[in-house]
Design a protein around this nucleic acid. Structure first.
Lengths: 196, 196
DNA sequence: AATATAAATGAATAATCATTTACTTATGAA
DNA sequence: TTCATAAGTAAATGATTATTCATTTATATT
């Protein structure tokens, strides 16, 4: 029996991310991927059922890594400010250190592929956030609100800053670069708004 | 001289949006568009130089309509809360009434096409927002901060709620639907955070 | 060392792709 | 009414697409 070459598999994943981001989902193709990864097109079909399977499986893997990173060192019992800041820094670090994964996943979530993504990722999110929120309400740190509202006011500003950073675009001037200072400025505003 | 059929042109634009969102950028093709719009593929090349031109020109048109809608009834001299709320409601109304345009534009801004998008859209944004912010600082309503930070804390929560609504997904339960009540809840938190 | 088996491949498949060509149709101006 | 001209088309172009086939290669087990 011949063993599967794990390194080859990893190169395929990496190059897939690279090409999907660089060329966009419409510029990407199995043949281009095969060429870039230095394998035969047929090899891709050993690893993945078809193109959709490839994109979805890579997407799910990225999603899982993202969630894991987000909740690293986080506990639902943390007080509101601490718990939020842990997630903010975790997220920022992940995104800044994994440009391709972030870019790819953001796109994926907007394409029709999103409907076929396994949902265990969002499940973990909801569960952790739900408990955390409930705690914060019980301790009188914030008012009860829908999870979607909490999520939006608590995290969307950070994600937006990261998106600005990723785009490398400015609002008229030099390309924007996310700094810890900006993160803290935004965080202070967010916390002030959420705290009772 | 034969005149160009404006109705035909409009059908093409509309069907292009429809297909791009429904099939994703990678599922979309000129032949599918031609068929869906009931015209010859060659006709598309009378309206647009090539596929890229088609996507970009439609994107720019959508962007312009979005900006116009956002600043409808808005003046830089408005006080912070009023000005923000005008933009919030404008945005929400536009997005909720123009599902396809919103979905398409969000995707476009993440694909490699974004680098080729004409920038007059962001220019208008920066200009309006810059003046508004400067005013608010001068009047002692908020502290000075980078435009990207202001943008992120002031608008990202709303966009995120809209995204939740669009996705039709929930955080564990029934599909989320944006209500004015939720918008107001989020807005109160945002304003509380931003106001000095 | 022989064998079984899955990995890996190069070359093919038919379908679809973006775009062009040669042609017909409609209409404003003469 | 004729004519010039751009709109519009059906059919074709060659390139690229996703996927498969027939075959070779490597290795774990016997």
């Amino acid at each position: 029996m011949r063993l599967r070459d794990e390194k080859k598999e990893e190169i395929v994943r990496k190059k897939a991310l690279e090409l999907l981001v660089q060329l966009g989902f419409d510029g990407f193709s199995m043949q281009k991927l095969a060429k870039a990864a230095g394998v035969s097109p047929a090899t891709l079909y050993i690893y993945y059922k078809d193109k959709e399977d490839l994109i979805l499986r890579i997407g799910e893997e990225v999603g899982e890594r993202m969630v894991k990173a987000t909740f690293d060192g986080f506990h639902q019992e943390m007080d509101l400010k601490t718990g939020l800041w842990v997630q903010w820094t975790n997220r920022a670090n992940f995104h800044l250190n994994h440009y391709l994964e972030t870019q790819f996943y953001e796109q994926l979530k907007l394409t029709p592929y999103k409907d076929k993504l396994a949902e265990n990722i969002t499940a973990k999110f909801s569960q952790e956030m739900g408990g955390f929120m409930k705690n914060a309400v019980k301790n009188g740190e914030t008012n009860r609100m829908k999870p979607e509202v909490f999520w939006s006011v608590a995290f969307a500003p950070l994600y937006n800053l990261i998106r600005f950073h990723m785009a490398g675009k400015s609002m008229g001037g030099a390309p924007y670069q996310l700094s810890e200072q900006d993160m803290k400025a935004a965080f202070d505003i967010v916390i002030k708004g959420i705290k009772k």
